[in-house]
Amino acid sequence: MSELTEKIKKIFTDEKLDILIGYEKGSLPLRGTPCFIESAEDADKLIFDSTCHNNLAKYLTDQKKTEVDARKIGIVVKGCDARAVVQLVVEKQFERENIVIIGVPCKGVIDPSKLRAKLRDKEISDFRFDGNKIIVSGENFQETFDKNELLSDGCLSCKYPNAPQYDYFIGDPAEPIASKDEYADIDEFEKKPPDERWEYFEKEYGKCIRCYACRNACPMCYCEQCFVDCSMPQWIGKGGNLSDKMIFHIVRAMHLAGRCVDCGACAAACPLNIDVRLLGKRIEREVAERFDFTAGMDFETPPALATFREDDKQEFIM
């Protein structure tokens, strides 16, 4: 029995949890998958490693949506997941005392869409971690990747690999990877002329098939009815029109201003490897610079866009 399962069993019993949301081994190599534990004995199947990319905070609002209850829910969280849980509490989506936050040290997670792009159609049957390398093998091939090549973009510049708020923490806190400046990609992108930037967004969002996996994987997208799902009135067209696709992505990015925790769940969920992170990251920086706010760090600070301070920067107001 691992330290993780042993401690979680104890927490499950001590805290009288009704349900615990964690990860188990998935059906494909390098894929962890969310699981819902209903008893302490069931905890044996829990895992946590770099294959556990999903943001489980998403399921807390799901649970709340389907039934109003006071069930006690435990949740295993990486740094970004924990920040999402905190932000959701700040946004009053559920009661803090009904949630037991169990932090685990995160060394970065593998983005399935990057893995898919690297491997193309080669399927791996086995893998192992060797320091900063990931060695994958399958029928007639073996390949070694630098871990950074496969990690989610957010992980590469992540400053918070451990939960900033938690009830329990299992293991030794992880060091941030920080192999890359957080806003390096944005700086690079902003140097381009407007035409080129527009072209990039057209190309990326043009690929969108509106499966809404990005929205549905996002813990902060919990609106009871998303504006794209409204039929009376219908706000945007549902066809292949580029401007409709763009409106969806732009509005989603705006709705996440000061709320996004950069967990990368949206990018990992996209079946077509669309760069859905760039716009959100740009807005995150805007909020950080203007309002000195980072989402999901503590339960007390009110959300950036729900407050007004006299010293808020406002030079952008004409």
């Binding site: 098939i209 509106r210 809404y212 996996a213 549905n216 067209g237 549902k238 029109n241 079946p271």
Partner: peptide, 23 residues
């Protein structure tokens, strides 16, 4: 654990349901 997105149906070779819209 289902997210309720359309990845499975849109990528499925046998899913055929459609909507009709006026643009």
């Amino acid at each position: 654990k289902c997210l309720g997105c359309a990845v499975c149906t849109f990528s499925c070779p046998t899913c055929y349901c459609f909507d009709i819209q006026d643009e």
